Computed example of a mutant assay.
Amino acid sequence: MSRRALTALIAALTLVVGFGVAQLTDVRALGGAVLVLGAAWCAWRSRPAVAWWRIAAVLALGGVGFVATHLLARTALGAWPSVLLTAAALAAATYALLAPRPSDPSASRPA
């Protein structure tokens, strides 16, 4: 599995596991800690391979996804399907955004 694919997978799993931890423990802060740790790991792992603004965009999308999951959970879709849908979208966006581009100063480093 490529570095970029693994980071995208971890980004998605961060949302899923964070929600699961919050649900199982009834301690929302523990779920939030999973989110923060997962985001930090993804940012740290991506730092040498891509431009900083790409990492910032992924982190911002993760935050938007977190909010979107809460909004979607209130619809007929429900909580777990909302989390899974948002996690899949985050994984796809992460994979796309963390691809080095020739215009990136860091494009010569492997992703």
Rank of each mutant, 00 (worst) to 15 (best):
residue 100 P to E: 07
residue 93 A to G: 10
residue 87 A to Y: 01
residue 1 M to A: 13
residue 18 G to N: 04
residue 40 A to E: 07
residue 111 A to R: 11
residue 101 R to W: 10
residue 27 V to K: 13
residue 30 L to P: 12
residue 29 A to H: 09
residue 53 W to K: 03
residue 58 V to Q: 00
residue 4 R to C: 03
residue 98 L to W: 05
residue 57 A to Y: 01
residue 20 G to F: 03
residue 103 S to K: 12
residue 102 P to F: 02
residue 36 V to C: 01
residue 56 A to P: 03
residue 30 L to N: 12
residue 79 A to S: 10
residue 49 A to M: 02
residue 105 P to E: 06
residue 68 A to Q: 13
residue 3 R to M: 11
residue 10 I to W: 05
residue 93 A to W: 05
residue 71 L to G: 02
residue 22 A to N: 05
residue 25 T to Y: 05
residue 19 F to Q: 11
residue 26 D to N: 13
residue 1 M to H: 07
residue 83 V to W: 00
residue 41 W to L: 15
residue 85 L to Y: 06
residue 106 S to V: 06
residue 84 L to W: 02
residue 2 S to V: 06
residue 27 V to W: 10
residue 71 L to T: 06
residue 46 S to M: 01
residue 98 L to I: 05
residue 83 V to L: 01
residue 42 C to H: 02
residue 106 S to H: 09
residue 80 W to L: 07
residue 30 L to S: 09
residue 15 L to W: 13
residue 87 A to Q: 04
residue 98 L to E: 01
residue 44 W to M: 13
residue 12 A to S: 09
residue 89 A to Y: 07
residue 1 M to Y: 10
residue 95 Y to P: 11
residue 76 A to H: 12
residue 52 W to H: 12
residue 86 T to F: 07
residue 6 L to G: 10
residue 29 A to Q: 08
residue 63 G to W: 01
residue 65 G to Y: 04
residue 108 S to L: 13
residue 58 V to M: 07
residue 73 A to D: 09
residue 50 V to S: 03
residue 23 Q to Y: 06
residue 85 L to R: 03
residue 70 H to Y: 11
residue 38 G to S: 00
residue 60 A to W: 13
residue 111 A to H: 13
residue 59 L to G: 10
residue 22 A to F: 08
residue 25 T to W: 01
residue 15 L to Y: 12
residue 38 G to Q: 00
residue 20 G to N: 01
residue 94 T to V: 03
residue 46 S to Y: 00
residue 47 R to S: 12
residue 23 Q to N: 03
residue 98 L to G: 03
residue 25 T to K: 02
residue 53 W to M: 07
residue 86 T to D: 08
residue 48 P to M: 05
residue 87 A to L: 01
residue 104 D to G: 00
residue 63 G to H: 06
residue 68 A to N: 15
residue 35 L to H: 13
residue 2 S to F: 04
residue 82 S to V: 05
residue 16 V to W: 03
residue 73 A to T: 11
residue 54 R to V: 14
residue 91 A to Q: 04
residue 20 G to E: 05
residue 60 A to T: 15
residue 18 G to K: 04
residue 111 A to K: 06
residue 95 Y to T: 08
residue 85 L to Q: 03
residue 85 L to A: 07
residue 13 L to H: 05
residue 67 V to L: 15
residue 52 W to M: 15
residue 105 P to A: 07
residue 87 A to P: 04
residue 108 S to P: 09
residue 9 L to A: 13
residue 91 A to M: 00
residue 80 W to A: 05
residue 86 T to M: 14
residue 4 R to M: 02
residue 69 T to R: 14
residue 43 A to L: 03
residue 88 A to F: 01
residue 52 W to P: 11
residue 91 A to T: 00
residue 11 A to H: 09
residue 84 L to E: 04
residue 96 A to L: 15
residue 61 L to V: 12
residue 60 A to V: 15
residue 14 T to D: 02
residue 63 G to Q: 04
residue 21 V to R: 05
residue 76 A to Y: 09
residue 33 A to T: 15
residue 29 A to S: 08
residue 101 R to C: 15
residue 94 T to K: 07
residue 41 W to Q: 14
residue 11 A to T: 12
residue 17 V to W: 06
residue 71 L to E: 10
residue 82 S to P: 04
residue 17 V to H: 00
residue 96 A to P: 09
residue 62 G to H: 00
residue 68 A to W: 10
residue 60 A to F: 15
residue 78 G to T: 08
residue 75 T to R: 10
